[in-house]
Design a protein around this nucleic acid. Structure first.
Lengths: 152, 152
DNA sequence: CGGTGATAGTTTAATATCAAACTATTTTAC
DNA sequence: GTAAAATAGTTTGATATTAAACTATCACCG
């Protein structure tokens, strides 16, 4: 019914999706203990590793629309995990940075998050993880949204 | 700063997530032309390939919570793409099936959807797709949610 | 200047998503 | 046979998500 080429590609993609979903589900369970969603964690982690960013830069890092970032930041701000500041010399930009509480939280949570992923991937040996990374990198780069299809 | 094991696993996982996100983004753009979300498409596709199912079975197929399935079905029902029927001999169960309109729609859309994925994966040759499938299958199976963590 | 266009962020409307509480129904145990 | 437990589905409350419309600000050009 399906051509061979089709069967192979669809099968690989289903397995790819399922694999990501199962690992993400594990990380979400653990993040929920701290009352964080995966998106909130993504923002805190980006700020932690890259320092203060404006909202567009955050959106580019975690691949979300600007409207979405705006909301996620509002929720983080409500819990005093980040600060937003308008730049004086260009009032269109908002600089986002971790609060002390936010820094403490991400410093506590990141090792656990990382541990969850390392454990999940540990069914694959070093060489398999390298190969998986190589194939996914190739796939991701070839299909990255180009030609004016970035999210606004 | 990060141990080698950690760097490798986190790196592989980020690439894995990005690859899935980029391919999914492509399929969503195309599904949006028909006014379907990915979840709605997932339901229609399951019904198309597997025949009538109850809501729990659908949830298991597309890995979503029962509450979510309930809502997605309501939205599909509003557009007359599916029918819901209570089973006479066990009134707890709802049998979901494609309407004629739903069948027409999925028959039109599925080939395009499939084509999008085949095209996206085509940067990998046959052997690479097989290897990617093998690695992801291993990863997914090892981390499938067990121990009472299914979604309700 | 002074308007035109670009850029950053916010808001809105629709859908999705989960966990948890809830309803309805059936099965099981006593 | 009825009470308790299990099962299927729905609802609720909170967050996420996008596209598109919108606001505010700045840059550039005449």
């Amino acid at each position: 019914m399906l051509r061979e080429e089709e069967r192979l590609a669809l099968g690989a993609f289903v397995k790819l999706s399922r694999a990501v979903e199962t690992v993400i589900a594990k990380t979400q369970r653990h993040l929920a203990d701290s009352g964080l969603t995966l998106s909130q964690f993504g923002v805190l982690e980006a700020l932690y590793h890259l320092g203060p960013l404006n909202q567009r830069e955050i959106g580019r890092k975690i691949l979300k629309s600007s409207g979405n970032i705006s909301l996620v930041l509002t929720n983080l701000e409500r819990r005093s995990l980040i600060h937003r500041t308008r730049l004086a010399h260009d009032r269109r930009h908002v600089t986002v940075e971790l609060s002390d509480r936010g820094r403490e939280l991400i410093e506590t949570i990141f090792p656990r998050h990382s541990g969850t992923i390392v454990a999940a991937l540990s069914v694959l040996d070093r060489q398999e993880q390298e190969e998986l990374g190589r194939l996914c990198r190739k796939l991701g780069l070839a299909n990255r949204s180009g030609r004016g299809q970035e999210r606004t």
